[in-house]
Simulated scan of single mutants.
Amino acid sequence: MTGADLHWFAWSVALDLPGVAQSRPFGPDYEVFKVGGKVFVMTTVVRGTPIVTLKCEPEHAVALRQQFGTITAGYHMNKRHWTSVAAGAGVSRGLVEELVRNAYLLVVDRLPRAKRPDLPSARNLHESSPTSS
Results as ranks from 00 to 15, higher is better:
residue 52 V to H: 12
residue 52 V to F: 12
residue 52 V to A: 14
residue 52 V to I: 06
residue 52 V to E: 07
residue 53 T to G: 05
residue 53 T to H: 06
residue 53 T to F: 04
residue 53 T to E: 09
residue 54 L to R: 10
residue 54 L to F: 13
residue 54 L to W: 10
residue 54 L to V: 15
residue 54 L to G: 05
residue 54 L to H: 12
residue 54 L to T: 09
residue 55 K to C: 10
residue 56 C to V: 15
residue 56 C to Y: 07
residue 57 E to F: 06
residue 57 E to W: 06
residue 57 E to D: 15
residue 58 P to W: 12
residue 58 P to N: 02
residue 59 E to L: 05
residue 59 E to R: 01
residue 59 E to H: 00
residue 59 E to M: 01
residue 59 E to D: 12
residue 59 E to C: 01
residue 59 E to G: 04
residue 59 E to P: 01
residue 59 E to Y: 00
residue 60 H to Y: 11
residue 60 H to V: 10
residue 60 H to S: 09
residue 60 H to E: 06
residue 60 H to A: 10
residue 60 H to G: 02
residue 61 A to I: 02
residue 61 A to P: 10
residue 61 A to V: 05
residue 62 V to A: 10
residue 62 V to L: 10
residue 62 V to M: 08
residue 63 A to Q: 12
residue 63 A to S: 14
residue 64 L to D: 10
residue 64 L to H: 08
residue 64 L to C: 04
residue 64 L to A: 04
residue 65 R to F: 00
residue 65 R to G: 00
residue 65 R to A: 03
residue 65 R to K: 13
residue 66 Q to K: 03
residue 66 Q to W: 03
residue 66 Q to H: 08
residue 68 F to C: 07
residue 68 F to D: 07
residue 68 F to P: 01
residue 68 F to W: 15
residue 69 G to V: 12
residue 69 G to T: 13
residue 69 G to Y: 08
residue 70 T to V: 04
residue 70 T to W: 15
residue 70 T to G: 11
residue 70 T to K: 15
residue 70 T to D: 09
residue 71 I to L: 09
residue 71 I to R: 09
residue 72 T to V: 07
residue 72 T to S: 09
residue 72 T to E: 08
residue 72 T to G: 06
residue 73 A to Y: 02
residue 73 A to T: 09
residue 73 A to R: 14
residue 74 G to H: 05
residue 74 G to F: 03
residue 74 G to R: 03
residue 75 Y to T: 06
residue 76 H to V: 03
residue 76 H to F: 04
residue 76 H to T: 03
residue 77 M to E: 02
residue 77 M to Y: 05
residue 77 M to T: 02
residue 77 M to S: 03
residue 77 M to R: 02
residue 77 M to F: 08
residue 77 M to G: 01
residue 78 N to Q: 08
residue 78 N to R: 10
residue 78 N to L: 11
residue 79 K to P: 04
residue 79 K to V: 13
residue 79 K to F: 04
residue 79 K to G: 04
residue 79 K to Q: 09
residue 79 K to D: 08
residue 80 R to F: 05
residue 80 R to W: 09
residue 80 R to N: 14
residue 80 R to K: 15
residue 81 H to Q: 11
residue 81 H to L: 07
residue 82 W to F: 06
residue 82 W to G: 00
residue 82 W to I: 06
residue 82 W to N: 00
residue 82 W to R: 05
residue 82 W to A: 00
residue 83 T to L: 12
residue 83 T to P: 03
residue 83 T to I: 11
residue 83 T to Q: 07
residue 83 T to C: 06
residue 83 T to S: 07
residue 84 S to W: 04
residue 84 S to T: 13
residue 84 S to M: 00
residue 84 S to F: 01
residue 84 S to P: 08
residue 85 V to P: 03
residue 85 V to D: 06
residue 85 V to A: 01
residue 85 V to M: 13
residue 85 V to H: 03
residue 86 A to I: 11
residue 86 A to F: 12
residue 86 A to Q: 10
residue 86 A to D: 01
residue 86 A to W: 11
residue 86 A to M: 12
residue 86 A to C: 10
residue 87 A to D: 15
residue 87 A to T: 14
residue 88 G to D: 13
residue 88 G to F: 11
residue 88 G to M: 06
